[in-house]
Design a protein around this nucleic acid. Structure first.
Lengths: 133, 133
DNA sequence: TCATGATGCGGGTATATACCTGTAAATTGA
DNA sequence: TCAATTTACAGGTATATACCCGCATCATGA
């Protein structure tokens, strides 16, 4: 274990940071991943699963499954496109919009909190800084 | 999307970097996550699931499930501890050791490849550098 | 127009991950 | 010594993620 693995180190801070955001969003019943997807949908709606996948750089099937959860929560509507019957078009529901509005200040707070940890962030310092969040 | 989310950005590079390592390890039939766990086991064997969880900063149940896969692959042995009947102790099998030996030069190559991308890596540069791997 | 190919998705399977609950074994304190 | 607590784990459930296959639909070229 002389040299740390960059990938494993990155995965570790990614898990940690995700936990920080998720904890902040928990009162709203969403995760940071879901928050991000809601933001993308708001920005691009009406948007197809494929397009959303390209934007988020996620596999289409992943986006489909993640979206189904948001749909089940009543935050996102899924409808067949009129031009192309194969396509599912996503939009925010009123609840989705409302929740995103409530989530945004929480996100801003966390972002700011992270920024203060990141000032002179080279890679190792990044790991260290996020390590004691 | 004026401001990017630190967490989402980090998750994204984490996915990407994982894909790079996983692709390199693919001929051996393991992932970078499994490689890392094998290394930890080799370093600490005989080791319990709980201890391994603490080392890897992963939930015990996660380690248990990940280990079961390695065990199914014949790379790791799981035996009840003699001192404490509750404890499962993990060790590498001969195949596990052999595979780790073959995996290590591959890992070194990827590490080196990543290093050349990381020279002056502040956070944003990190994202950018990993972005075009 | 119509076969062929491309596109959009759903679902199966798999890993990686966490939390919670239940159970069994060990420890400890009265 | 024995009840109460702590520990170690397995398994259930859930999200997040990817790859593959199959199906339906659309687009295109002969």
């Amino acid at each position: 274990m002389t040299h740390p693995c960059y990938c494993i180190a990155l995965r570790k801070v990614s898990r940690r940071l995700t936990a920080v955001y998720d904890e902040a969003f928990a009162p709203l019943g969403i995760t940071v991943s879901q928050f991000s997807q809601l933001r993308h949908i708001r920005h691009k709606q009406p948007v197809s699963l494929t397009e959303l996948g390209e934007i988020q750089e996620l596999d289409r099937s992943t986006v489909g499954r993640n979206t189904k959860v948001l749909h089940r929560m009543g935050l996102v509507s899924m409808a067949a496109s009129e031009e192309d019957q194969r396509e599912t078009v996503l939009s925010l529901t009123d609840e989705g919009r409302a929740l995103l509005k409530r989530a945004t200040p929480i996100w801003n707070d966390v972002q700011t909190r992270i920024e203060t940890k990141l000032e002179a962030a080279e890679f190792d310092r990044l790991i260290g800084a996020l390590g004691d969040l």
